[in-house]
């Protein structure tokens, strides 16, 4: 999406135009969902929905370009995830039996659709399983958000130097783990 297209879509979305909101959602929803899944798979969908609702409430006050909009959205998503974790710490969730879940309606041909995202999903799972949260957060924000070190530092409230260190350690750790567990990770790297 070009800058002009983004500006037009943002202005229309701030007026409540559904098509414009759809453009922004298609652009950012997959990245946000992957980012959240990389940090906490169980909360990703709920937190992502909260993120969009919070963004919708404050969309009228946002000013900036597409890069700043991405940073804004990822900031909201991260804050919502932190809130969700705090709530969960105070009130543990109740497990639901698989029999109940099996009766819930599903999208058409979910198995076939799931094949589309297996690679991205596997990559997210790799990051989540191999890296500590702070390193995974930095890597995901840089890759999925397309943000630079300073922008990531502002989101995670760390200094840029710390972000570079976390990024370097994360990449190295990923490389070591992939080498150690190559057979299990073959689906990701092919």
């Amino acid at each position: 999406m070009t800058t002009d297209e983004f500006d037009e879509a943002l202005a229309a979305a701030q007026d409540g135009a559904q098509w414009a909101v759809g453009v922004l959602w298609n652009e950012l929803h997959p990245r946000l969902l992957r980012f959240l899944r990389g940090l906490d798979r169980s909360a990703a969908e709920d937190v992502e929905a909260d993120t969009w609702l919070a963004a919708a409430r404050d969309l009228g006050t946002f000013h900036g370009d597409d890069r700043q909009f991405r940073a804004w959205m990822f900031t909201i998503a991260r804050n919502r995830l932190i809130d969700w974790r705090r709530r969960e710490a105070r009130r543990p969730s109740v497990a639901v039996s698989p029999e109940v879940l099996g009766e819930r309606p599903a999208a058409d041909d979910p198995a076939g659709l799931a094949l589309d995202v297996v690679r991205a999903d596997a990559a997210v799972a790799l990051v989540r399983s191999c890296l500590p949260t702070d390193q995974a957060e930095v890597i995901l924000l840089r890759v999925l958000g397309g943000l630079d070190v300073d922008e990531v530092a502002a989101i995670v409230r760390k200094r840029p130097g710390n972000v570079r260190v976390l990024q370097h350690r994360g990449l190295r750790r990923l490389a070591e783990r992939i080498t150690e567990e190559a057979p299990e990770l073959r689906g990701v790297t092919r």
Binding site: N26, H29, P30, R34, A107, P110, L113, A114, D116, V117, R119, A120, A122, A123, V124, L126, V127, I139, L140, V143, L144, L171, L174, A175, I178, T179, A182, L185, V188, T189, R190
Partner: peptide, 16 residues
């Protein structure tokens, strides 16, 4: 392998 994993993260969204 890391480069491939990061590239998979950047893949465009799929229909699901």
């Amino acid at each position: 392998a890391v480069a491939a994993a990061l590239q998979a993260l950047r893949e465009p969204p799929e229909s699901l």
